[in-house]
Simulated assay, not measured.
Amino acid sequence: MPRIDLRIDHDDIATDADLRLEYRGVPFTGEVVEAIGDHLLSQMLYVDGIPHGPDREWWADGRPMSEGQSEYGAPVGVWRKCHHNGQLAREQHFDSMGKPTDIHTWDEDGQPTDAGSRFGAGSP
């Protein structure tokens, strides 16, 4: 699978009029990563310049920062973000069309900071 390293290849990356990721003037299919040395900070997969697949980020110490899945540019399923201490900070659910269905948040001690929000039909 082709791979773009944002630290090295940033001059060859652009977006076209449809906001598709291009690499050297061509819509990109493959993996886009950012790393410090051998330590991965972010990873995102693209198909024809559109996010499609896992999207992950890590704190500099290697702990997970966020993770989710995109299908043809839309978030689907469960997306999670973590506090630096590793505690879950946010969990947001999306339907198969990329619309949010509910969200939960927690503080750094794991205490809920919401009662669980639900999004109605047509909500952003």
Rank of each mutant, 00 (worst) to 15 (best):
A89F: 05
G30K: 01
P112M: 10
S66Y: 03
G49E: 07
R24M: 08
I103F: 00
L21S: 00
G25V: 13
P27V: 05
V47A: 05
I13M: 08
P51G: 02
E71C: 06
L6V: 06
P2F: 01
E71Y: 14
H10V: 05
T105G: 02
E57F: 08
M65Y: 13
K81Y: 03
L6R: 13
S96D: 14
L6A: 07
V78H: 07
I103M: 09
D55H: 14
Y72I: 02
G30V: 01
R80A: 02
G73F: 07
R3S: 12
E67A: 15
G110E: 06
V76G: 04
L88C: 08
V76N: 07
A35N: 09
W59E: 03
V47I: 09
A17Q: 11
H93V: 00
M1E: 13
D12A: 15
E108W: 11
W59A: 00
M65A: 14
G49L: 10
D109R: 12
E91D: 08
V33S: 03
G49R: 09
S123V: 03
G62E: 14
V32I: 05
D5C: 09
T113I: 11
E22L: 15
R80H: 06
D18G: 05
W58T: 00
A35E: 10
A74H: 08
